[in-house]
Amino acid sequence: MPEDLKDQNGSKKGLTALLEEVKSEVKVLKEKGVEEAKSLQDPEKTQLYKSIFRVKHDDKPRSRALGVLSNVFLHLHPAKINRDAVAYNYTWGMGGISFYLFVVLTFTGTLLMFYYHPSKVQAFRDILYLEHDVPFGKLLRNMHRWAAHLMIITVWLHMFRVFLTGSYKKPREFNWVVGVILMLLTMLLSFTGYLLPDDQLGFWAVTVGTNMARATPLLGHEGPFGPELGMTAYNDVRFGLLGGSIVDSNALLRAYIWHCIAIPLIASVFMAVHFWRVRKDGGISGPSPMMLASEIKEERKL
């Protein structure tokens, strides 16, 4: 509508003039675009990057320290540690590997849960389904099992290292206790998982394992002083563990819930305490300067 155009601009515009105007605007836009594209060569300057990481990524001490401290996944670490404390021959790295394996197990375990029903009818078939039909199902199950076995080994070796370096001594006594509990939880996690495929191996292993609970003193119906306290196969501690007097569907469901929910939650809480205490007790124990026998101070009496 030429009349409208005239009204807006106050004068009649030629088509060429309009074209010139558009050209100049495009030029401005192009320059802006090129400038922005150039700035993308340095993504650390973008708003997106800054909003996520907040800290400059360079080798200045301040940036390095803040990079660790301002990151939720890294903030378990201090900004700086003793230069010898990163020596592998001292640490063996087994505690960290155990934690990493726990993460791997949580990840593969969650994926396995998508394909598994904790019922006598389906449990074993689900394993067959995982092994033969689910894409990478076999790899998933294998990885979950081997990571579990490996975690037990690394936890034991971690304990061995902590003992050999005397790291349980003052002020880390309590963290050693937490560690022993974590070792127990690791083994219980593995043990409850053993039953879940509902095959002969798991069934008899758990039968052998829980049969020992019959013999619990006072609380088992075959244990010392158990019958005297009124324990039978239907009310003793083994009954409570299995949800029945034999390893059956209730036991499977209980093992599943302990394995997938209860023990991982409890273990996570203890892990949080364990890691927290490592920091609060002054970081990892050493290698610290050696003390001589002649330097033992007389202990303060109570």
Binding site: Y90, L164, T165, G166, S167, K169, K170, S285, G286, P287, S288, P289, M290, M291, A293, I296, K297
Partner: peptide, 9 residues
């Protein structure tokens, strides 16, 4: 034993 706190011995 207060010795051996944080090193192999």
């Amino acid at each position: 034993n207060p010795l051996g706190n944080g090193y192999y011995t």
